[in-house]
Design a protein around this nucleic acid. Structure first.
Length: 863
RNA sequence: GCGGAUGUGGCGGAAUUGGUAGACGCGCUAGACUUAGGAUCUAGUGUCGAGAGACGUGGGGGUUCGAGUCCCUUCAUCCGCACCA
């Protein structure tokens, strides 16, 4: 019998499906292992060969763990809400649910062909009401909780109300929006609306006027991680800053725990570093600067209180609320002009223009609290309203931005730190500031002679004792803006009474997404849900018109997989206690600052309120690399329908044109297929080299527009799923990005055929029951040792090469002994399940190879 | 600018702890079997050299009996962050 993957693969896929081979249940007699893939957004383009890379790796690991005796949870589902389906709906009028369903079906067909061991009984789709019920439920919990900075955890709003009634809010240290201080009496005197308004400042899911990233093109606000370089990540549309009343999640309250948690998880250093940067902790002091001739004072944040003696001016963000008030009449005009100019600049211009120095003097002076010197107050847009307090003390000698500013506007510069081995010099002659965090203090009265570290400590104590300010920790991490002015997302379980938001009772969930006539904003600028009929509660209160963002549904999906059909809870205690957390999470690094922060936050919140037992959701995380496209080019001679082969193109004046990689094989163009590709090439002529048309190539993103998308179905049709799986892994380390290049796929395919021939010669099964000899035992034991090792460290490419070596050796030894081939087959089944199952049965086994036990090796054969 | 990663044959990549650099595969060369093969098998394949041998892991320097691996320095590419006070 020849190796016929096209017969074998569908046969066993059907068999596994029939026998529910991949169905898993809680089983307290066996240890659990949870392997999770980041679930895909089902786009209209279907899967390309890059998508399954991570799925194959996690599938191998799942199968391996199963053979090692673990009860493996390995689910899959769909992140089904999202902009592309909605944009498509706007263009075509097609309901996004319909396109999403079609796309999911296509994804499923493609995934099924690859032979994954997913337990599809546990499939979730984020747009399914039974699923998003729990997204809405979590939102309600966040609405009903506040974050206590003292205990560092979420606590019920009801407890907060009790405290307000008893003592007002003075003794409360909460992560909250700015709120006035009130007594118990003042609280009780507030009417319902005023109380609700106050509580809103404390809720973890809260509604507030916030500066948001507004994307006019998409008609919605975007979260920080959805914006890059001033344009939307999806679509690349310009984004502007705008104040809007929006739902936000108080992610920033969890900044410290999100940071600390990173030390407990087994993720790559680079990914942890990205998260640390995003959280952006900095330790320093907030210091009050009195104003000359004003009652107000300005609070600034600095990480270098030691340089206070070198603060020679102050700078405020143009949007700072005090700017207008303290600007003197003679500078008013200038300041107004600057504020307007700065306000009109969008994020993109500001970033692009970062090097030019702009700013104006307000005419006002602050008092340096430590020297009591009068220092001028400027406004400039290099100071951001969104970080710290929106005002800084400028220490030009030791901060490069302040230095550039001082030079430009001829402001005084005082050196207060001198580097080890250096002498004090005149800053007027400096080319650049001395930003170093080491050195000795000079010109600094109280702290002269101290090194920087000690000086920071000393001066901070001094500031605190004199009540000039206090030690302070700042984070870059912002609260997540949670409203989207879009249709295709989870509706908020929120209604409005007297303009105040209230959440629905849990028994009203799910609040299903209503039908609308069009997926566009209403005429008066309301989100699409404004078009829904009867979008009110039973007693007539209007429901929220915004929907939730993409990351809502993906924040707790790993929990839902544990118990996906539970109607009474997101996850039962029993299931949660058994499955606990994700042991291995595989996905792309592009989710480093979005999903992976949000879902950690979400999980920590659920942990706080006692709904889940683990503080961190993803124990180990592997980032699979991206598979880039390898584009091919033909070279058209300008003005002619004639194409010159790659090696000869220099002799002509040519235009490179992308050509569909599916009609190119090893860079050789199928000229006939090219003529048929598109009408304009019908009469194409070619200038060949060595009788062939050689294409040029480039590594680019895999995308339709570059004609470099390779679909896994085509590979499967030609070589089979086992070859595809093997080849994707053989390409190199999973974490590494690499271009897809089919060259070399024959090698792994040949390997499978060779493996097959250890069992079959022509039509005859040639395996024997003979006892293996020393050499054969050495070969198999070494292989068992190596494969186990390699899988444990996710080195699948070297594992495959070990398989190849083993098969080559057995081939040389003419070994067809069952005792050797069976353990080999068991190991290979994680990588190439179909051929392994076929040969496992050919060898006389009746149960599935998937449940076989991973072989053990004997040390004595390893030498 | 800051942070992280990566540089090894014609190509993808091995070398897990400082111990024979280039495993495995592709490609290429020669041969066998074949009506034919884009099937299969055998041998060869880092570079220079007829050979002995010399040189070789981006470049330069160092530690070591011994360095792809450790240290310093420099260059290149990729990724992330970027007026974060």
């Amino acid at each position: 019998m020849e190796y016929s993957f096209s017969n074998i693969e569908p046969k066993w896929q059907e068999e596994w499906r029939k026998n529910k081979t991949y169905k898993v249940e809680v089983d307290n007699s066996r240890p659990k292992f949870y392997v999770l893939d980041m679930f895909p957004y089902p786009s209209g383009a279907g899967l390309h060969v890059g998508h399954p890379l991570g799925y194959i790796a996690s599938d191998i690991f799942s199968r391996y763990k199963r053979q090692k005796g673990f009860n493996v949870l390995h689910p899959m589902g769909y992140d089904a809400y999202g902009l592309p389906a909605e944009q498509y709906a706007i263009q075509t009028g097609q309901h996004p649910a319909v396109t999403t369903e079609i796309n999911i079906k296509r994804y499923r067909e493609q995934l099924d062909k690859i032979g994954f061991s997913f337990d599809w009984n546990r499939e979730v789709q984020t747009c399914d009401p039974e699923y998003y019920k729990w997204t809405q439920w979590a939102f309600i919990q966040m609405f009903n909780h506040w974050f206590n900075n003292e205990t560092q955890k979420a606590e019920p709003i009801a407890d907060l109300v009790t405290e307000f009634e008893k003592n007002g809010n003075n003794g409360i240290n909460a992560a909250c929006s700015p709120t006035e201080v009130f007594t118990a009496e003042e609280w009780k005197a507030k009417d319902e609306k005023a109380q609700q308004e106050t509580l809103l400042n404390y809720r973890i899911a809260y509604l507030a006027d916030t500066m948001v990233n507004w994307c006019p093109e998409l008609g919605t606000v975007l979260a920080n991680d959805e914006v890059k370089d001033g344009v939307s990540v999806r679509g690349g549309h310009p984004v502007v800053q705008k104040t809007m009343r929006q739902w936000s999640l108080r992610v920033s309250a969890y900044a410290e725990r999100l940071l600390a948690g990173l030390d407990k998880v087994d993720w790559s250093d680079s990914l942890k570093e990205i998260q640390r940067n995003w959280i952006g902790k900095s330790i320093g002091a907030s210091v009050h600067f009195k104003l000359d001739g004003h009652d107000h004072q300005i609070e600034i944040f600095t990480t270098r209180p030691d340089t206070l003696y070198g603060a020679t001016f102050m700078v405020m963000a143009p949007e700072h609320e005090l700017v207008r008030e303290l600007t003197t009449p003679d500078h008013k005009e200038e300041v107004e002009k600057y504020i307007e100019w700065a306000g009109n600049r969008n994020e993109r211009e500001r970033i692009a223009d970062a090097k030019s120095i702009t700013g104006v003097f307000t005419g006002a002076y602050g008092i340096n609290p430590i020297t009591n010197e009068k220092i001028p107050i400027w406004i400039a847009d290099y100071v951001l309203m969104g970080y710290g307090t929106g005002a800084i003390m400028a220490v030009p000698a030791h901060d490069s931005r302040d230095f550039a500013f001082a030079k430009h506007f001829k402001l005084p510069i005082i050196q207060v730190v001198v580097g080890e081995g250096d002498k004090e010099s005149d800053p007027a002659n400096w080319e650049e500031s001395y930003d170093a965090k080491e050195g000795k203090m000079i010109n600094s009265d109280l702290i002269n002679g101290l090194d920087v570290k000690k000086a920071i400590e000393t001066i901070t104590k001094h500031i605190e004792s004199q009540e000039l300010g206090k030690k302070q920790i700042n984070y870059k991490l912002r609260d997540a803006i949670f409203s989207r002015q879009r249709y295709w997302g989870e509706p908020f379980p929120v209604y409005y009474k007297d303009d105040m938001p209230y959440v629905l009772d849990e028994d009203k969930l799910p609040l299903e997404l209503p039908e609308v006539d069009k997926y566009l904003p209403t005429e008066d600028g309301q989100p699409p849900l404004g078009r829904a009929k009867n979008w009110t509660t039973e007693d007539g209160h209007p429901l929220e018109l915004n929907t939730m963002p993409g990351f809502a549904g993906s924040s707790a999906y790993y929990l839902r997989y544990m118990d996906p059909r539970n109607n009474d809870a997101l996850v039962s205690k029993e299931a949660n206690e058994y499955w606990q957390d994700v042991d291995l999470y595989v996905g792309g690094t592009e989710h480093a600052t979005g999903h992976l922060i949000y879902s950690r936050f979400w999980n920590k919140f659920l942990f706080d309120i006692g709904k889940v037992i683990k503080d961190e959701p993803y124990k180990k995380l592997i980032n699979q690399g991206m598979i880039q496209g390898r584009s091919n080019f033909v070279y058209r001679i300008k003005g002619e329908n004639k194409y010159v082969s790659f090696g000869l193109r220099k002799d002509y004046d040519v235009t490179p044109i992308h050509v569909d990689v599916n009609i190119v094989d090893n860079d050789i163009l199928d000229t006939e297929a090219f003529r048929n590709w598109r009408p304009e090439f019908k009469d194409a002529e070619f200038i060949l080299e060595d009788g062939k048309y050689v294409c040029g190539y480039a590594v680019e993103k895999m995308s339709k527009s570059m004609f470099n998308v390779v679909n896994p179905d085509i590979i499967i049709e030609k070589y089979g799923a086992d070859t595809l799986r093997l080849y994707e892994m053989f390409l190199g380390p999973v974490e590494q990005s690499k271009p897809w290049d089919t060259k070399g796929i024959d090698g792994v395919h040949r390997f499978l055929k060779k493996f097959w021939r250890l069992f079959y010669e022509g039509e005859n099964l040639i395996i024997t029951d003979e006892q293996p000899n020393e050499n054969e035992l050495k070969v198999i034991n070494k292989t068992i040792h190596k494969i186990g090792d390699d899988i444990e460290r996710f080195s699948f490419n070297t594992a495959i090469s070990a398989f190849m070596i083993c098969v080559n050796d057995l081939n040389d030894l003419k070994c067809h002994k069952k005792a050797i081939l069976e353990p080999l087959t068991i190991m290979l089944s994680s990588f190439a399940p179909h051929i392994a199952e076929e040969l496992w049965h050919a060898a006389g086994n009746t149960s599935t190879v998937i449940d076989a036990t991973f072989p053990t090796y004997d040390e004595k054969y390893l030498k």
